[in-house]
Amino acid sequence: MAEPLIKIENVVKQYTRDTQVLTVLDGLSLTVEKGDFVALMGPSGSGKTTLLNLIAGIDRPTRGRILVGDAEVSAMGEGALAKWRSEHVGFIFQLYNLVPVLTAFENVELPLLLTRLSKKDRRRQVETALGVVGLSDRMDHYPRQLSGGQEQRVAIARAIATDPALLVADEPTGDLDAKSGEEILVLLERLHAEFGKTIVMVTHDPKAAARAHRLVHLDKGVLKEDVRAKGEKGEIGVAAAAAIAAGK
């Protein structure tokens, strides 16, 4: 059995709005193995993005423990969490979230600015990351000069620039047309298969979820279904993902 990378133990996440306490995750436990490709599905408000944020260390649970590798991210202070994120997690957002005044190169370089790498080494890593996503010829382009799919590929290059073990993606194809979405999914699969990245992806799209090797279905803050693809390199499949998404 593969070594676990993420351990979520009895996690509760509550938000207080005025006097109302809203429970978004309710005693959730989950383990994700190193090198896994997990899709988080569920209806709006089911707690998918909240769970992703907790795994990535950009939010903290109200109760419970979250361990990623050797780090107990649920117990870390803000400064330590920021440093941990910069070294261990790559983020991919639905709306790409590139800095509009920076070129593709400069956007990918951003997380590397937090490291002690020399300018030369930073350049080498940025070039490698942009090469992996197939945008070596677009380094000096600004986000406005790129298509949506290209912007998302730059965002993926930014996510892998520091070579983190864990990639978290929040609806990475949600703002793209079918063709560009497909290209992004192929790229994520490649990062998983060739580079051994552990990927946790939130999606509404059964086609996107179908590429994952494991599908976790949340509803009202609890784990409703946890399906693993058959075989070592199997995928969930579109029909199965669609059925799970529909709650069948």
Binding site: A56, I58, A82, R85, S86, F93, V99, L110, L114
Partner: peptide, 14 residues
């Protein structure tokens, strides 16, 4: 606001 949140997500401290 979003851009700053993204920077912090990437590990930029307060």
């Amino acid at each position: 606001v979003t851009e700053i949140a993204v920077l912090r997500t990437l590990g930029f401290g307060k």
